[in-house]
């Protein structure tokens, strides 16, 4: 029979080698070899130290290997909290779509930590960042979400930002959002798509389908 038992049967009672010292891991995070960088990312995340989280977030911004970037983002996803959110938020404006979208995925996974930063993101000078921020609100279990979106459609001058907010309001909007939605066509007159989106949102909220958890 050509099936053979493993040469060294796996013994899970053995502990993994302890992470190297922080300084060594930080050096490895910039090593030229992707596997070394991935291993450093794993071990830095294991420490849970704020310095390690900050280093991982910083590395994400310059990482060129897609597998290492994926590893870094997955590792920081498991380190929920303020340090991770603050380290990643600037990348919502990145020109690198892998980084930008990857960061949005990570932030969506830690809604409880995003709340304090919502107003900052929704006021960013870059409309693309504001749109990404609105996308994060769809999954945010925060009673202020509908109100934030109402503020956006009342003040934001970018048509696409307002359209994104209307789409999310259709999913999570509360009845208090209806007056602002009905006023919105006067800010962007003659845009059939926006009128259609507003009509959909108003209908859904009016039918009680907009608010998360409503019948």
């Amino acid at each position: 029979m050509t099936l053979v038992r493993p040469v060294e049967p796996t013994d899970i009672s053995l502990s993994p080698p302890p992470p190297e010292d922080m300084a060594g891991l930080l050096v490895d995070l910039s090593d030229e070899s992707p596997p070394v960088r991935r291993r450093a990312a794993h071990n830095l995340a294991r420490t849970g130290e704020p310095q390690a989280i900050a280093a991982l977030c910083a590395r994400a911004g310059v990482e060129t290997d897609e597998t290492v970037l994926e590893t870094i983002l997955t590792m920081v996803m498991g380190c929920r909290g303020r340090a991770t959110v603050e380290g990643l938020l600037p990348y919502l404006a990145s020109d690198n779509p892998s980084l930008r979208n990857g960061v949005a995925d990570v932030l969506r996974a830690m809604p409880e930590a995003i709340g304090p930063h919502v107003e900052e993101v929704l006021s960013d000078h870059d409309p693309a960042v504001r749109i990404m921020g609105i996308g994060l609100l769809a999954g945010l279990p925060d009673p202020r979400v509908s109100g934030w979106l109402v503020e956006v459609i009342g003040r934001d001058d970018d048509f696409n930002v307002c359209a994104a907010a209307v789409d999310v309001l259709a999913e999570v909007g509360e009845p208090a959002a209806l007056p602002a939605l009905k006023r919105l066509p006067t800010r962007f007159p003659g845009v059939p798509f926006l009128e259609f989106a507003i009509h959909t949102a108003v209908s859904r909220i009016g039918n009680g389908e907009g608010k998360r958890g409503a019948p």
Binding site: M1, L3, V4, R5, P6, P9, T10, I12
Partner: peptide, 11 residues
């Protein structure tokens, strides 16, 4: 023979 060829571990 077949049972003896396979490594079962708790993971």
């Amino acid at each position: 023979d077949l049972r003896g060829s396979i490594d079962f571990t708790l993971v």
